[in-house]
Every structure is written in C-alpha cells, then in structure tokens.
Design a protein around this nucleic acid. Structure first.
Length: 278
DNA sequence: CGGTGCCTGCTG
DNA sequence: CAGCAGGCACCG
C-alpha cells in the first residue's frame, strides 16, 4: 500500500500523539511479523520504554524509544498503524497491539501479513535487510541530476524498474513511479542509459513534484490506506494515469493503457510517453 | 534480469 | 473462478 507520501503521512500523524507515551503492555497474535525476536523477547524489551521520536527512511518507519532502542516497521502492501483508545473496536487482522500509558494503544493491522517489525538497539537496526542499502531520499538535495546520470550510465534494463529500485532512490512505489513517468513524458520501457540530461532533469522534477504533492494531500487512499489516526488521503483525486486504464488521457486525446513492466501493472499514455529509439 | 512466493480480499 | 493488488526477497 504505502509509498513515501503515505509513510510520511503516517509518521506525521503519529508523531505528536505518540511521543512521550510509555509502552505498558504488548499483545502479539502473529509472532512471525516480529522479524528478529520472539513475542516474549519483544515484550520484555519494549515494556516500560517510551517513544522519543519517529523518523522515516524510504518506506521504513523508525520509532525511537528511550534507552537507545528503535522499532523499525515496514508496512509493505496492507500494513496499517493506528493510534486508538482501548475502548475502540479492534479491527480484523490486527496482529500486534501496544498498550500505552493514558489508556491508548498503537495497533498494527495487516491483511496480507507482508509487513514486519524489527526491534533492536539503535546501532543494530542496520541489520534490517534493505534499510542500510537505501538510496537517497528523493526530496533531499543528494537526489541530484548528477547522481541520477551517474547511476543511469551504462544501465540497460527498464527505466521503471530503476524507479522501483530502493537502492537507487528510496520510497518510490508503483503509483508514484507511473505518475512521475507520465509527468516527465518518459516511457517506462526506456533504457536508463539512453536518457539525455534534459530527460533526467524532467524525471527528477516530476518525481519530486509528484511526491511532494502526495505528501501535501496526505497520501493516496484506494481502500486500505489511512494514516495513524484513521484519516484517508486525497491524492487519488489527482492521479493522471495510475488506475485510469481505458480512460481519457488528461494531457492529449489518447487513452490510458495498462502494460506490465518489471512484473507490475503499469499505466501509460503511449502518445504522451513515446517509446522512442534507444 | 525475469519469475515466484509470501497472504487475503476484491473484482470482473 | 482467475486475475489482480500500494512491496520486496529470493531463486535460477
């Protein structure tokens, strides 16, 4: 489900409510979601620690706890973190519940059970697969034209696959990749190595613009995604191609097509995004 | 590189 | 009932 804008929105929505709250109890009904600890080990380490900060890297959320501990959460496709009071009904597919001081809870719900939690000392979280290999944050300055040109040099394969590669750029997923490629007027099957500097500049701007707009509108809600307080996003109303197969292109008289690239459903306007010769 | 598996639920 | 879904690791 969640890409950078959704994960960032969850972070922001939980920050002020969670910081200062102490974990008073732990309830794990799906122990396999705890990637590195048993439910007993996790409970023993987490109870009595309080939340200090929440940081996002790519699609990972890092909950900083007291005494130098960090809880890493990845929501993958259908994970949800929800702050709630104890009295509120617990939704189906809720697999982990943290009881918090003040009668609140932090609940983790995940229909497809693809997400995970990893709990360790701050200096140990580099062990989380993928976290230490993340590329630059697309909204930061180090995601530069020079960096992209360098990474694209000599690179065969498919442009869209690069955008989804978290070691190239952190936090881009299927929706925002399609939207950015459309905005940059680049075909997803282009060879990265073939892009001109002008095209790389367009791609970088489009990615940054679409992700910033996604954050501003608090994410894209189709069905599952809501933020940490249960609120939907509204970027779904701004989508130009994603999920619009067969509908008119918003940029020309063409129609949005669906193709498969790198195993993922991919939405393009082949008139606005010419395949060209590589 | 592409293909597959991990899961459940929804849609055509 | 098959196919698809916002992600990613692993396999050959």
């Amino acid at each position: 489900m969640p890409e950078l804008p959704e994960v960032e929105t969850v972070r922001r929505s939980l920050l002020s409510t969670l910081v200062g709250k102490r974990i008073t109890g732990v309830n794990v009904s799906m122990p396999k979601l705890l990637r590195n600890l048993s439910a007993e080990q996790f409970t023993a380490l987490a109870v009595d620690r309080h939340f200090v900060d929440i940081v996002r890297r790519g699609k990972y959320l890092l909950f900083r706890l007291s005494d130098g501990y960090t809880l890493v959460v990845h929501l993958r496709m259908t994970g949800q973190l929800r702050f709630a009071t104890c009295e509120e009904d617990v939704p189906r597919h809720t697999h982990i519940v943290l009881d918090l001081s003040g009668g609140h809870q932090l609940r983790y719900t995940d229909i497809r059970q693809f997400g995970f939690w990893f709990f360790a000392r701050n200096e140990e979280i580099a062990q989380v697969a993928g976290l230490d290999k993340l590329g630059p944050e697309p909204l930061e300055d180090d995601f530069s034209v020079a960096y992209i040109m360098d990474r694209f040099l000599g690179r065969r394969g498919k442009l869209k696959a690069m955008l989804l590669d978290q070691t190239f750029v952190a936090g881009v997923g299927n929706i925002y990749a399609d939207e950015a490629l459309f905005m940059a007027r680049l075909h997803p099957l282009r060879t990265p190595d073939s892009l001109t500097q002008d095209e790389v500049e367009r791609l970088r701007s489009a990615l940054r613009d679409v992700l910033a707009a996604g954050v501003k509108l608090r994410g894209t809600t189709f069905s599952d995604y809501v933020d940490g307080l249960g609120l939907s996003g509204s970027f779904q109303n701004q989508l130009l191609v994603y999920g619009r197969t067969g509908q008119p292109c918003r940029g020309c008289a063409g129609v949005v097509e669906r193709i498969v690239v790198a195993g993922r459903g991919t939405h393009i306007c082949s008139r606005c995004q010419p395949r060209m010769v590589d």
